[in-house]
Simulated assay, not measured.
Amino acid sequence: MEPVPGEPAAVARLGSERALVVADYHAGIEAGLRYERGVELESNAAVRRVRLLGLLDRIDPDRLVVLGDLGHRIGGSADEEGDELDELLGAVLDRVPLTLVRGNHDAGVPARFESMDDDSLLVTDSGGVRLGRVGFVHGHTWPAREVVESDVVCVGHEHPAVRLEDSVGGGRKERAWLRGPLRPEPFAEHLGLDVDDLDWRAPEIIVFPAFNDRSGGTWVNVDGQGFLSPFLPEALRGDETEAFLLDGTRLGPYRSV
Rank of each mutant, 00 (worst) to 15 (best):
P186T: 02
E36K: 14
V21G: 04
L191A: 05
R48L: 13
G108F: 06
H159L: 05
L20N: 06
A176L: 11
R58E: 11
V195W: 00
G139Y: 00
H105P: 10
V11G: 05
G38W: 10
V155C: 06
D197C: 11
D24M: 04
I205T: 07
A12T: 01
S115R: 15
S150P: 15
L41F: 13
R95F: 04
L251W: 14
E42I: 08
E2H: 10
L191Y: 15
F113C: 14
W219L: 15
E87P: 06
R179L: 12
H26C: 02
T124R: 07
S77G: 03
V153A: 04
R102K: 11
E189G: 02
N212T: 09
V155Q: 04
V11R: 14
H105V: 00
D117Y: 00
V162A: 10
V147S: 07
V220S: 11
V47E: 11
A107G: 14
V129T: 09
V152Y: 01
E84F: 14
R255S: 11
V134P: 04
G32C: 06
A19S: 08
E2F: 12
R179Q: 11
A111P: 15
F244R: 02
A144M: 02
V134Q: 07
R34N: 06
E7T: 01
R179A: 12
R183P: 05
G224M: 12
R255G: 10
D194V: 07
L122K: 04
G127R: 15
V222M: 08
A31C: 04
T141H: 04
L131W: 12
D106T: 03
L246G: 03
V168R: 14
A9T: 03
A176E: 11
